[in-house]
Design a protein around this nucleic acid. Sequence first.
DNA 1: CATTGTGAACTCATTCACAGCG
DNA 2: CGCTGTGAATGAGTTCACAATG
Lengths: 216, 216
Amino acid sequence: MQKSTHIPKATITRLSLYYRQLELMEFDGYRTVSSDKLAWLCQVNPAQVRKDLGYFGEFGVRGVGYDVKELQEQIKRILAINREWNLGIVGIGKLGSALLQHRNLQVRGFNCVAAFDNDPEKIGETAPLGIRIRDIEELKTAVKELNIEIGVITTPASAAQYVADLFVEADVNAILNFSPTRIQVPDCCMVENIDFTVRLDILAYKVRNEIYAKAI
Amino acid sequence: MQKSTHIPKATITRLSLYYRQLELMEFDGYRTVSSDKLAWLCQVNPAQVRKDLGYFGEFGVRGVGYDVKELQEQIKRILAINREWNLGIVGIGKLGSALLQHRNLQVRGFNCVAAFDNDPEKIGETAPLGIRIRDIEELKTAVKELNIEIGVITTPASAAQYVADLFVEADVNAILNFSPTRIQVPDCCMVENIDFTVRLDILAYKVRNEIYAKAI
DNA sequence: CATTGTGAACTCATTCACAGCG
DNA sequence: CGCTGTGAATGAGTTCACAATG
């Protein structure tokens, strides 16, 4: 097996996609799936599917394909989503509230266990789903107490770096950043940025130039 | 100049980042900026900045750098964000409502001009910012009437493909898809997917494996 | 004999290194 | 002299093509 080489970032993204498709297929009653079929469903190349899986082991049966249920388990294990993760959300505006209530997060084992803001009007209030909004200054103690492992930033750009620093100081080394800014963090801290406005810029460019047929 | 070669997708994403930094720099009073400085701010390689810009022309002055204001204008022109774009949002749940009210979209010239849902309870109601919620079945006529060029999908996964088909039929060929599903569209239609749960999966993987220091 | 697993070939993207120029 | 612009070199990621095999 080709295990232990360096693994492309895009491979991880695709594993997540494969997993979603496998869930749907299991729901539809499929027991096995070929790399061709899975690739078609995910709009990628069949060899890509096999190579992606090949980084982590040999999960298929030649001449048959992959066991739908088994492969889900393997991907969950690889991605470390075969367990629950506690999230702390900072910035309880419209977007933060929407995330707190977002069903898909809970379903996938990402639990929003704490909400923070710096607005005195909001602190102490009860956010959706009965979560009390805490003062941002309580972040460090709450992280310890509630075992928060992933921080979510839904503040305006101006506050993002300050919040990121608090997370880093509290030893949270995974951040999902929805603010339209790139935050600076030490190498030990992992960041994923979700910036709608950048994505809209890309769409504007693409539609004007009519290139890049499909997006991952 | 190296114009008209094929342009990497990542280049477009970075142009959007450069633009945001340039806005901040102008606000801070800078008149010019070197590729080194801009690169440092955006956490990329200086040669990358020059190469990215080089795809589209020669915007700098040797020995000096780039004019902060001028470069903003050029990037706006390249990305086609030197104009306004009309958005139609489908699925007025928590996330859809949050987007309707999102200041950053308007500021950047992305106007939410219509809201759609299929829930009879919601249709006819007034969404945030005084926008009337329309029946999803009115989509095609509203697209024509309001000149909607970008469709935004904030429905559950189960409805996403149906909505995408409506957009395609209405000749909207740019879609921002927030649902946790990959939609199938013809090549003429551009799609950008924003899927938080995939991003959280990636974070889970990264934090478990402690690799990939920084993300773009 | 259909389908996996994977080295080799290829394509795409980034970085280097330096010539070109204000 | 400093900084841009870019061909050449390197590196990363994808696809091909086929041997391996249940």
